[in-house]
Amino acid sequence: MTGHSMTAEPAGPAGRAPGGSRLSPRKRQRISRAVQYVVLAAAVVAVALLVNWQGLALNFAKMDVAVKAFPEVFTVALRNTIIYTVGGFVFGSIGGLLLALMRLSSVRPYRWIAVVYIEIFRGLPALLIFLFILFLPLALPGFWLPGGTYGLGILGLTIVSSAYMAETLRAGLQAVPKGQMEAARSLGMSHARAMISVIIPQAIRIVIPPTTNQFVALLKDSSLVLFLGVSGEYVELTKFGNDLASETANATPIMVVGLTYLLVTIPLGYLASRLERRQAKGR
């Protein structure tokens, strides 16, 4: 502990430490803290003086522009963001469960297919997938999805989220103790029955916290629907904010949209960490 004082001394950026390296740890800590406060205060003063607050306020927080975003930011944009996200989440969960079961299957080709799918779609930027989807109707002439733009957006999010969900669910399935399957089988259940009645319900419980985080990630990824060239009733938050911003030549709508995202993502984030803590206690 004391040998450390030699190397720690030059770390003080102020260089005003009286008495050289012979300071007690408590004194050194006090000085270090004082220096940190001074640096922080200097930074705050500098930002306050140097930034053009009026210009910023005019571009990012203009009240009369902000008002224009209501109520559509909630009734149309947020609603659509939630539709895209929940749709992608539901189908992604189903696809992910299927892929996770394939990944753990005893049939080797199933494992290969699952691994290839997961590796590809976790490795690609989500945006690239949306750009692909844009060309699907061109590439496959008979291509049709229910729900119009909703269908396309949900498809894109499903492709991405099923790859991530597959890995989460696989971890969840493997986290269920082996004895559970043995107990179920020794009661005469078939492998499939044991999976459905015993293993999958427990795996889902295990993955609820990480899945909540995945839902948040998906909510943010739903902004990529912007690149599908959506319009009118199909716009989600990002597209809505972007359109209104170019219309009014002002960034305030983007701020409004940003706050709207946070309104959903921050509570969900808290929920996820609460669920995590509760699970850590319960197990």
């Binding site: 976790r122 991530y164 969900m165 890995e167 989460t168 971890a171 969840g172 493997q174 986290a175 103790p177 082996k178 004895g179 043995e182 295990i206 993955v207 990480p210 985080n213 995945q214 990630a217 197990r283």
Partner: peptide, 14 residues
């Protein structure tokens, strides 16, 4: 006995 509790760490996917 094969019951060493496999309190497997949940690998986060992301």
């Amino acid at each position: 006995s094969a019951d060493a509790d496999s309190e497997g760490t949940q690998a986060q996917a992301r």
